[in-house]
Design a protein around this nucleic acid. Structure first.
Lengths: 113, 113
DNA sequence: TAAAGTGGTATATTTTAATATACCAAGGAG
DNA sequence: CTCCTTGGTATATTAAAATATACCACTTTA
């Protein structure tokens, strides 16, 4: 039984959706509405954001608060569980910053911007 | 231009192959032969390991040293560039450990063991 | 002389993730 | 009235990642 291996998988599984870590990082600054998240991550697609938010919620990392208004208003925020990722997220940013030579694949993807 | 977003993508892109972070973590303890890595990560498939090692090498995170012997002997080790990930990797392990409730998806995957 | 061992290549197939497209509810603005 | 708004649902399609399968080189061991 390799516990380290399981632990890494646990964390990655929760963070490694195409934009999950970015979404979580945005939420570290505070509660955001669905549309605000979308605006702050211009490349993300509507469906993709919806699915990733749902998974993050299922995994207990974010709260979803829906107001009974029309047009709808839905706010997302980090749970305590998710807030524990904050430290890790800043390290994701830092490593990327210090090694700002984009990877071959990341570059290929972002150049469509 | 959202630099944080790019930085996160850079890091994730390098780490988020199915077993990449685990491979890197194993290598933090020192140089390993191909077969040793495979043995330490029983669930990884031959082809998958080969591909991920190649990508890690392309991204400059690991060194590949091949000895002209038969049967072949190939050793993998972290580059300085990759060693800078060590801190991040230990945090991946830690968060997973502190939140050892496996995510819905991670559980589903590992239960086939 | 046949078989085993290592770290691959090449190719096809399956599984998973991301994307595109169309549609909805119901209140307010014009 | 009609259109716009927001945050979705449902479905189909495409792209990407992982897996399966077969094969190879050459030396050593049995």
């Amino acid at each position: 039984m390799d516990k380290d291996l399981e632990n890494i998988k646990t964390t990655l599984d929760v963070v490694c959706g195409k934009w999950k870590a970015v979404v979580l990082y945005k939420l570290t600054s505070g509660t955001l509405r669905f549309g605000e998240i979308k605006k702050q991550i211009p490349l993300i697609k509507h469906q993709t954001l919806i699915k990733q938010l749902k998974e993050l919620e299922e995994d207990g990392l974010i709260n979803r608060k829906s107001y009974p208004e029309v047009p709808p208003k839905v706010e997302y925020s980090l749970t305590d569980y998710g807030r524990d990722l904050e430290y890790l997220l800043t390290h994701l940013v830092e490593w990327g910053n210090e090694h700002n030579r984009l990877s071959y694949r990341a570059e290929k993807e972002l150049e469509e911007t």
